[in-house]
Amino acid sequence: MSLVSAQKLSKRFGEMIAVDNVSLDVARGEVVGFLGPNGAGKSTTMKMISGFLEPDRGAAEICGVDVWSHPEEAKSRLGYLPEGAPAYGDMPVADFLRFCGRMRGLKGAGLRNRLAEMADRVRLTEVWSRPIETLSKGYRRRVGIAQALIHDPDVLILDEPTDGLDPNQKHEMRTLIRTIAPEKSIIVSTHILEEVEAICSRAVIIARGQVVADSTPQDLLERAANGRAIRVTIGSPEEKAVVEKVKPCSDGADLEVMERRNGSTRLLLRYGDTPADATELAKRLRDAELPVEEVGLWRPRLEDVFRDVTTPYH
C-alpha cells in the first residue's frame, strides 16, 4: 500500500502554473528523490502533500487519509521539513523539540523518550540547550530533521534536507535517512544528483510543474545512455571536419559534439541497440589518419539525464 498518494495535483499562482497535474505514489520503504530545476514546482508540490497549501485541483492522501477533509489526522502521520528548516530562533533546541512533540500530542515519559532518542540519533546532544539562532547551518538542519521525526511518523517529507551542509554533514544526513528508510515512506527534494544515487530508490524529475521522469536512478541512467555509446576525443578544433571524417568510420551511429576544449573536439557516438566496439572504432579512426586522443565507452551521469529530460522545457 502506498503511504503517500497524490492524485493530479495542480496549483497556479496568478498567471503562473506552478504545478500541473502531478501524481505521485510512495510505498513504505521507498525513498523518492524529487528533482527539478529551481522553480520547477518541487516545493509547491510538497506543500500541497503536507497540507500547508491547498491545491486548485487534485487530492493528496497520507496513509490513506485525505489531507484536506481530515487535516489533523493526516498531518499526525506526517513529518515535514519545510524549505530552509524554519525554527523559532530564540528557543533552545530542547525547548523547541519539546514544543513540537507536545503539539503532536506527545507527553510525559513518551515525550522524554523521544527527545532522548532525537538527541542521540540526530546527534544534537552537544547543542541541546543552546538557542537555535546561535547554531551553525548544519545543526539547524538537524534540528529541523529532529522536529520532523519527533513523533516517529510513517511519512517523511524533507524539502532540501542537505542544502547548505558541508560534505561531512551531507554524508551524515544521508546515513540518517538511509537508516530510517525501511520503515517509512520518504520524499526528499534536492538538486544534488549524487544524493539521489546515494539514497533514493526512485527518482521523480519535475520540470515546469510536470513530472517528466519517474523511475529508479539506474533505469534513468540506462535510458539516457540509449544503449551503448562511445566517447571519442580528436585533437583538432575543426568541429565540422572532424564530424565528417568520423562519420564514415562509425557504423551509422548518432554523432553528437559534446564539447570543444584546448584544441580538441569531443564527440559522443550513440549506437542505440547495435553493439559498439570501441577497439574497432579506434583502429578505423587511426587508419583514417585522425589525431585520436581518446576512445572509450561512455557512462552517463545522472546529471546528463537531468539535463536531457528538463532542457526541452526551458
Partner: peptide
C-alpha cells in the same frame, strides 16, 4: 515557521 505550525495536527 508558520509552515511548521500549520502542518502540525
Amino acid at each position: 515557521t508558520i509552515e511548521l505550525l500549520m502542518t502540525m495536527p
